[in-house]
């Protein structure tokens, strides 16, 4: 039992690291970035290519992926989302076009990675890092899991508190609630948007590196599968609430682990999406969502 809980926490941390960046951009500057999965994948892919030539230790691999993720997200913002937001007349159509823009952008790194790897899984074999297995009180875990749990919860709580207490966090939240009033109050929307997207991309890169260490390898299509789960986690937690994202990630992971532990592996998606469906029926604004912040 304790082992299952530990596994659920590990899986939840994996989801959390991935969902954090997406949630950050979505709940502050209103960008639901469908290229987040592709950014994640391509950051890991970049680090993979680098480790094929240089044997890097784990922190360096993570750094490469983080830099790659930030770069991809910044480019996405400058070339696609920024122009869409500048040209948009109303918020609603901008949001849909940002979705589509993300879908378009996502196709590009995916196609490149598929072409280069012939869709074969890739990982960081060239890295000097070797996961160590250890046992505490009969619970078996690896150093990778430890890193992910600490990183996931640490960064998750950090981002949550930062948004809640810092001045920039306040400005970002102000944009999330009412962007026009916020810019009248002197918030520079486009600079903040660029910074937020770069941060979100860096988080995607971090997730890419950590997950690839945890899973051994990912494939070009791996990002897509996580994207829908992250979408579910953010909605489950409630849009606009970073605390909700943390809870959402662990709830989803807990449900999935439970179904797998019952050896009903083919029902995992049905149970997790059924759970989300049920939560939304009871709380239409998600677990911790504010009712006022409605985006359509």
């Amino acid at each position: 039992m304790a082992q299952h809980i530990l596994n659920a926490v590990a899986l939840g941390s994996v989801y959390l690291v991935f969902a954090l960046g997406m949630a950050l951009a979505w709940s502050t500057i209103g960008i639901l970035n469908f290229a987040h999965g592709a950014t994640f994948m391509f950051s890991a892919f970049t680090a993979h290519v680098v480790t094929q030539h240089v044997a890097l230790p784990m922190p360096a691999v993570v750094l490469v992926a983080v830099a790659a993720g930030a770069l991809i997200a910044t480019l996405t913002q400058v070339l696609a989302f920024g122009p869409i937001m500048r040209r948009a007349t109303d918020h609603r159509s901008a949001e849909l076009r940002i979705l589509i823009g993300g879908i378009g952008v996502a196709a590009i790194p995916l196609a490149i990675a598929e072409r280069v790897t012939a869709s074969a899984p890739f990982g960081f074999r060239g890295s000097t890092y070797q996961a160590q297995v250890f046992e505490i009180a009969g619970l078996r875990m690896t150093t990778t899991v430890l890193v992910i749990v600490v990183a996931g919860i640490g960064i998750g709580v950090g981002v949550w508190r930062w948004l809640a207490t810092s001045r920039q966090g306040l400005a970002l939240r102000a944009i999330g609630v009412d962007s026009e009033t916020a810019s009248l109050m002197g918030v520079d929307r486009s600079t903040l948007a660029l910074g937020t997207m770069a941060t979100a991309g860096a988080l995607a890169g971090l997730a890419g590196a950590l997950l690839t260490f945890q899973l051994g390898a990912i494939a070009p299509a791996s990002g897509d599968q996580l994207l829908i789960k992250a979408f579910a986690i953010v909605v489950l937690g409630g849009l606009g609430s970073m605390g909700g994202v943390i809870v959402g990630a662990f709830v989803l992971a807990g449900a999935e682990t439970f179904v797998l532990a019952m050896n009903q592996g083919t029902w995992v998606d049905a149970v997790s999406f059924g759970l989300i469906f049920a939560v939304l029926l009871l709380r239409p604004q998600g677990l911790f969502g504010r009712k006022e912040v409605r985006r359509t």
Partner: peptide
């Protein structure tokens, strides 16, 4: 040819930007 998907992505993104 082989870069079909890349062109596809560029076109979709461009449509989102330039065709409100």
């Amino acid at each position: 040819g082989e870069w079909e998907d890349v062109v596809y992505g560029v076109l979709v993104a461009a449509a989102a930007v330039y065709l409100p």
